[in-house]
Write a protein that binds this DNA or RNA. Structure first.
Length: 291
DNA sequence: AAGTCTTTCAACCGCTAGATG
DNA sequence: CCATCTAGCGGTTGAAAGACT
């Protein structure tokens, strides 16, 4: 079999991270930057394996991570991207820069999958022609967006909007602790102003990313101009999508995408963004149908 | 109030691809 | 070319919290 897990070494700590460990890790990364994870446990004295350090950083401590409830728009994006890309959480996460792949994956598994299933069973009972393969979400997504499913659209419109306290309250308990500790650390560090500036820079970069994303979205819409929105998928995108679906169903998606041709994602991306811009409302409503 | 069940999500595991010597 | 190492990804697990009886 393969190599033993890196965490099998004696003395390597597992389980939840303590705020103290978080501070050690964050301060080290602030100093040296992320990367070279191998050396992190040795240099910091953390009794964690390098992998654990990296995961803790990328999924939890990295600046600019947004936590807490997903917005309806984010939900819509995830549902949509999942239908397009499958369980490529990292790829999906790249479209939601403030969310981690782990977060998205968890949210999908705990919330969205259930909602989709629930909705689909509801929809199936309404429609005389159920999808051929009811185990996948793809059919749901495309069917949902088709003209034939006005019922679905009406259904979703009847649902309540997200509760007003949909902000990240439940995250506060842990994050606030870490934030407090980090504040303390920044105050006590040799050059706090520099570090604060770096933090601010990160924040700005994130908002810039957002702006970039938005402007990209807008310009694409202006260029392309899909007036009918989701229900009208341009031919060139449709062929790409059907290619991918075919590949995926035959289990060769990865190989084909990775080797022979560059991923036709620019098309998908363009189509997706056009769609989102044109159909923001529908996307925002999408998750509400399941509540 | 106490016990049980369900849900959530942070963290882990195993695998793979790419880099390096 | 091969072996090894590292980073990254997706699936899974299990502890904690919340909901329910």
């Amino acid at each position: 079999m393969g190599r033993p897990p890196c965490c099998d070494k004696i003395g390597i700590k597992k389980g939840p991270w303590t705020p103290e460990e978080d501070i050690v890790l964050v301060s080290y990364i602030q100093e040296h930057g992320p990367g070279n994870w191998r050396s992190v446990p040795t240099n910091t004295g953390l009794m964690r394996c390098s992998k654990s350090c990296r995961l803790r950083w990328t999924n939890y401590l990295r600046p600019g991570i947004k936590r807490g409830n997903f917005t309806p728009h984010e939900e819509g994006m995830i549902v949509h991207l999942q239908a397009l890309l499958g369980n490529k959480w990292a790829a999906i996460a790249s479209y939601l820069p403030q969310r981690t792949d782990n977060d998205i994956k968890n949210y999908w598994n705990t919330h969205l999958k259930k909602k989709l299933k629930k909705f689909q069973t509801g929809l199936d009972s309404h429609l005389s022609t159920p999808p051929a393969d009811s185990s996948t979400c793809d059919h749901f997504s495309w069917n949902f967006m088709s003209d034939n499913n006005k019922q679905g659209s009406k259904l979703l419109l009847q649902q309540n909007h997200n509760s007003p306290n949909s902000s990240s309250s439940f995250y506060a308990s842990s994050t606030e602790n870490i934030s407090r500790l980090l504040e303390g650390w920044m105050r006590s560090s040799p050059n706090p102003s520099r570090k604060v500036d770096e933090m601010i820079l990160h924040e700005n970069q994130n908002s810039q990313d957002q702006d970039l994303f938005k402007s990209r979205e807008t310009s694409l819409v202006q260029d392309g101009g899909i007036s009918n929105g989701i229900k009208t998928i341009p031919k060139e995108y449709m062929s790409v999508i059907s290619d991918i679906s075919a590949c995926e169903s035959s289990g060769v998606a990865e190989k084909t995408m990775n080797t022979n041709t560059p991923p036709p994602f620019t098309y998908l991306e363009k189509w997706l963004l056009e769609e989102n811009a044109g159909q923001v409302e529908e996307l925002m409503e999408l998750p509400m149908i399941f509540t």
